[in-house]
Design a binder for these strands. Structure first.
Lengths: 165, 165
DNA sequence: TATTGTTATACTCTATAACTATA
DNA sequence: TATAGTTATAGAGTATAACAATA
């Protein structure tokens, strides 16, 4: 077995006296960046798509009745104009449709088409496979602990972010 | 105190029977996205800069002798052309300089200028402040555990990624 | 021939702000 | 007036591939 070369990365800038919070953040980002790069490459290579589009479709997959543009914007943490752009691209590919709400005609309800659902399910299966492969061999107990601790982190940080608005 | 509204996000798509690995990944990404959004906004608002540029400078800050373009590309996990573009922007702002290596004239050694170092240090201090504020109140012991566990995750994933190449 | 880095290209994502339509 | 969404704009980041210079 070959020992992987240790490539210094963004975390390398740390010294011992930095704040614990900063160390945690840089380590978190380093982990995410590595995995995310793999996912982006896989989506591009195997499906000719991008992470934001995959994310858009995944939001819709569990909500058969569809979502509004504004809800999508909030969930994806991007501004409204972007959602319009991504939605236009996905609509032109036939993966989603937009129905005006009969009660309030300012609102569009966005849903997956059947083709969109099939397409998304294939991507999601591949995505899950990449992740399972990447993490294969990491102790279940460690994964479980991380899931627990990250839940706490997420809740904490979200509360902070929303409090400052 | 107001209870933050729970906004469903990318993690919402999960159901109980999904793989643990996938749950871990989506939670990791959700945490990173929230913090990263804050950092991006802060860098844009207070310094008119971006995360990739900040990352570029931070790579150089701990390496007084400088780095090659290729090393920067590797550490930032982006392809070479991008590094050239970011370097050109930072050079035009006087934050870095590029010296050709006398031994091998294909190589450029990129270093922070004094102005670049001062500029970076101010940004880094603000950055650390944002992170410390965001995580303030999260148990030290939980932070320490996360740092430990994420070290294991990072090592594992990096080994996997490098093995597949 | 291989390596280092640049250039050219095309595309996606992003925020901001002005705008339209509806409530 | 306020809200939902679109459009227009401008800019940044990204990958790919062809390229030049050097080893």
């Amino acid at each position: 077995m070959s020992v992987p070369t240790s490539v210094p990365d963004s975390e390398t800038r740390l010294t011992a006296d930095d704040h614990q919070a900063l160390r945690l953040w840089l380590r978190l980002m380093a982990c995410t960046t590595v995995i995310e790069t793999e996912v982006r490459q896989g989506l591009a290579r195997e499906f000719g798509t991008t992470l934001p589009r995959f994310d858009f479709l995944s939001q819709l997959d569990r909500v058969p009745e569809g979502l509004r543009m504004g809800e999508l914007s909030q969930r994806m943490m991007v501004t409204g104009g972007n959602v319009t752009g991504i939605a236009a691209a996905l609509e032109s590919e036939g993966l989603i449709d937009r129905q005006p709400d009969p009660k309030d005609r300012r609102i569009y309800r966005v849903r997956l088409t059947n083709a969109g659902r099939r397409s998304f399910r294939r991507m999601a299966a591949a995505h899950e496979g990449w992740i399972v492969d990447l993490l294969a061999g990491l102790e279940d107990s460690q994964q479980a602990q991380l899931i627990e601790l990250l839940a706490g982190l997420k809740k904490h940080v979200l509360a902070r972010v929303q409090a400052e608005q």
